[in-house]
Design a protein around this nucleic acid. Structure first.
Lengths: 252, 252
DNA sequence: ATCATAGTCGTCTGCCTGACGATAAACACT
DNA sequence: AGTGTTTATCGTCAGGCAGACGACTATGAT
């Protein structure tokens, strides 16, 4: 394993972001339109080069702030305030993943509450929240009848990995609260699970589970009727980060 | 996000390997002695530069073969034969993690059955299996009374992450069989769990759990007495990769 | 007033786990 | 041959948790 400084090939290192949120009862990811070749005009995940003096997590947090205005929290702490949860996802380094040069991309996963429309360099038409199924389908037509091109580079693969990570991680952690505003009801949290997993959950069993797990939710005392119906208790995320026993994802 | 080829800082990209096995009832990792500065003479994780035309997983498999002679399996398949399970772990890119230059290391996790003594470039004294607690303790003295220096670079952090990944992943997957030879008994599999988790498990409940999970173990028909006592049935790893419900790690 | 909507509390049943007794089949002694 | 030791394997029982689902409550809409 020689470390001769002239004996290694130079790489470009980037961070790409899978930013997920729940809007209108469906799991959405942030996509930006590419302004230059390759894949000009196609949708891609936000991202950019890691700077010379920057740690990977710093670079990811910087990109996240540039694209969304979100302030990333320490990965060991569940999301609070208007910050987002941010964690490293995986690294992608196929020699041909970028046609121009050798690029290794360290993908990160960010989970955020529902946000206003995104801004990409101030240009709203070049950034959007899109349902993940729409971004992941290969070709075909979107909900507006407009033809859909696959994501640029290997970003469909990265997005699929990020979605799978989020789906499995809310099973055994309190991460689903990262999709919620600072104060939320049990029903709102349940709708997050339903959107991320794409299933329907029994409201009564869900309520029993989350309120019965010590440290998961702490009541704030307030109530709200913003979802209609009977007023619901408001909660904040508690200190517990691990759910034991886990929330069970229904089969099939 | 400009992609101007002259606008990004060059990085060296390496793969580092956390190779775990179970020997003498304890979880051990492969360590190699560094032959040159920095950290000359200190123990480190095996690893090396990613070549210009190589994928990350290819580089990891190549390094693994060079260090141990193991043939890595496809990550989606549980280990069989004399191959090892290999999967990407995480990427480490602190600007100061290597004092000489900017190095981003994509760590991989390999799980292997108990092997003969390792070879590092043919030199046995420069590679060894060591219990992970021994490699992770900061300073102090090893079991042979010899003073122990911490691992080079940030390899203690990488090793700790790899161990934690292995510990949690055998809960909900059949990955523990990657530590076993092609044919093994329920008791041998139980000793793997006990070594990785550092706990004692009830042999009767463990037996019920693993034999009752469909697709986890398939009997080969043979028996063995290599562990002493009553002959035990031999099994191979079944097709199931996910354990549902998971194996529960005892509290405390 | 009535209905629709959402939230919250209970009940019941079945499955799984942890604790642990009992039996079985080998080997090592004496 | 008998006895003890070791490991494997089968069974039993009680407690906990999840799925299915009934019942009641408190709002806003018509």
């Amino acid at each position: 394993m020689p470390y001769d400084p002239s004996a290694f090939p130079p790489f470009a290192v980037t961070v790409d972001l899978v930013v997920l949120t729940v809007r209108r009862h469906s799991l959405c990811a942030l996509a930006v339109r590419r302004g230059e070749p390759p894949f000009q005009g196609r949708w891609a995940l936000p991202g950019g080069f890691v700077r010379a003096d920057e740690d990977l997590s710093q670079a990811a947090a910087r990109e996240l702030a540039e694209e969304t205005g979100l302030c990333a929290h320490d990965p060991s702490v569940p999301a609070q305030d208007n910050g987002a949860h941010l964690e490293q996802l995986a690294t992608y380094g196929d020699p041909k993943r970028d046609p121009r040069m050798r690029v290794v991309s360290v993908a990160h996963l960010a989970l955020a509450p529902d946000l206003p429309a995104p801004r990409a360099g101030g240009d709203a038409s070049n950034a959007r929240w899109a349902p993940v199924e729409e971004l992941l389908q290969q070709g075909g037509y979107g909900r507006d009848g407009e033809p859909v091109a696959p994501l640029a580079f290997d970003h469909a693969l990265i997005l699929a990995d990020g979605v799978e990570r989020a789906r499995s991680k809310i099973e055994y952690s309190s991460l689903a609260t990262a999709f919620c505003p600072p104060e939320f009801t049990v029903g709102e949290l349940r709708r997050v699970y339903e959107a991320v997993w794409g299933v329907a959950l029994d409201p009564r069993n869900f309520h029993r589970k989350v309120t019965g797990t010590p440290g998961f939710l702490v009541p704030t005392g307030g109530t709200t009727t913003r979802q209609g119906g009977r007023p619901a208790q408001l909660f904040r995320a508690g200190g517990a980060t691990l759910l034991n026993p886990p929330m069970l994802r229904p089969e099939v």
